[in-house]
């Protein structure tokens, strides 16, 4: 197994360990309204300084990171932002640490096809 394949396999432990790691249950719903419960990383934070750019950021930023092979195994394609108002968007639902559930629309999808992980930038959604 190459190092790259090993890194993808490690995602199962790094990204999807909900027992002893940071894995978190996330419900993904496709535009065709097919839903599945997956495990990945979820973020929902308000921050003052963007650590990437050092710029001041006000507002609430939410994102998820999922293993692409798990999405595929669940029958999904890669999530993407849907601009067409005539279509349903990709939706994700997850709880915060205090058990409050939030539903988000996928605003932007950033897949890393080298390592097999997709990061989705989210926007609040009223189901």
């Amino acid at each position: 197994m190459s190092l790259r394949q090993l890194a993808e396999a490690d995602l199962g432990a790094v990204l999807e360990d909900g027992a002893t790691g940071f894995g978190w249950p996330i419900t993904v719903t496709s535009p065709a309204e097919m839903s599945a419960l997956l495990t990945g990383f979820s973020d929902d934070i308000s921050q003052i300084i963007d650590p990437d750019t050092g710029q001041i950021v006000s507002g609430r930023l939410a994102s998820i990171a999922l293993r692409i092979s798990s999405l595929t195994a669940a029958g999904f394609e890669l999530p993407q932002g849907i601009a067409d108002a005539a279509q349903k968007p990709w939706l994700v639902t997850f709880d915060d640490i205090n058990g409050n559930s939030f539903t988000f629309k996928v605003m932007q999808s950033n897949p890393d096809r080298a390592l097999g992980i997709v990061t989705c930038i989210l926007e609040l959604y009223r189901p």
Partner: peptide
Amino acid sequence: GQSADNPAGGHTPGDR
């Protein structure tokens, strides 16, 4: 604006 489900089909984009 907040994106919302449109019961008639599709959705209402929050940016618009």
